[in-house]
């Protein structure tokens, strides 16, 4: 068992999930409640990673942060190196790759809230922001848990983006799924089996936890 790869993957999953929640909450709020006619474009853009091959996404991340792009040069000026083959590169790729997995459960949760509750809060003197934290977010606990767990699990098992952006540097970018790939390439099936089982178990436990949590989540309007 490659403990170093496991530790790295856990760290990547946690950082990605944390960043995604911060980004996904305002995005999901906007998608759920905006009445802009061009909202569908944002929705399509946010869902792109669901259908794009991970290698294509990884390729674009490389290009966008490459030394010939303005973004890449800015990054290099800040950090002194390119984004490719670094842990930060993995985080950027993972955030983009798992973005829809964070946004969609939150949008669904927000839309399931009775709009009258939001009206009631506003009439009672609460600002939009205050309404978000006092009514919308507490009533979206299940969506929030789902978003966190899905982004965590999705990042935990990702392969294509990681390989494209990060390569295979032990301790820096070699995640658990790449480790499995390496072991299979080397004909080391027994080790690949152990690692794969760990990946399978973690994924199953996370999904089971989501469903268990959602089973006892707040219903939208228990008396309606």
């Amino acid at each position: 068992m490659n403990w170093q790869a496991l530790e790295l993957t856990l760290r990547l999953s946690c950082v990605t999930a944390a960043i995604l929640i911060v980004l996904a909450l305002p995005t999901a709020y906007w998608v759920a409640y905006s009445r802009r006619p061009w909202k569908f474009l944002v929705q399509a853009l946010a869902s792109l990673p669901l259908v794009m091959p991970p290698t294509v996404l990884g390729f674009y991340v490389l290009v966008a942060f490459g030394s010939s792009s303005p973004l890449g040069r800015l990054w290099q000026r800040w950090t002194g190196h390119t984004l490719a083959f670094t842990f930060a590169g993995l985080v950027v790729g993972s955030v983009l790759y798992s973005f829809p997995f964070a946004v969609q459960p939150l949008v669904n949760s927000f839309l399931a809230i009775d709009p009258k509750l939001i009206d009631a809060s506003r009439v009672l003197g609460a600002s939009r922001l205050s309404t978000f934290f006092r009514v919308i977010l507490p009533l979206s606990a299940s969506g929030l848990a789902t978003a966190i767990a899905l982004t965590f699990a999705h990042t935990f098992g990702e392969f294509g983006v990681v390989l494209m952006v990060g390569g295979d540097i032990p301790g820096v970018t070699r995640t658990i799924s790449i480790d499995v790939f390496d072991q299979v390439q080397a004909g080391n099936y027994a080790a690949a089996n152990v690692t794969s089982l760990v990946l399978l178990a973690v994924s199953f436990l996370v999904l089971a936890a989501i469903y268990a949590w959602n089973r006892r989540a707040w219903p939208r309007a228990p008396w309606a």
Binding site: D119, A120, V123, A126, W218, A224
Partner: peptide
Amino acid sequence: VSRRGVGYVFQNSALFPHLTVERNVRYG
């Protein structure tokens, strides 16, 4: 809307389901 000083009661009551009766009443 938050500064109009209006009381509004909806047909389905629109009580906040995650708050107790007292915390609902304190809300405003």
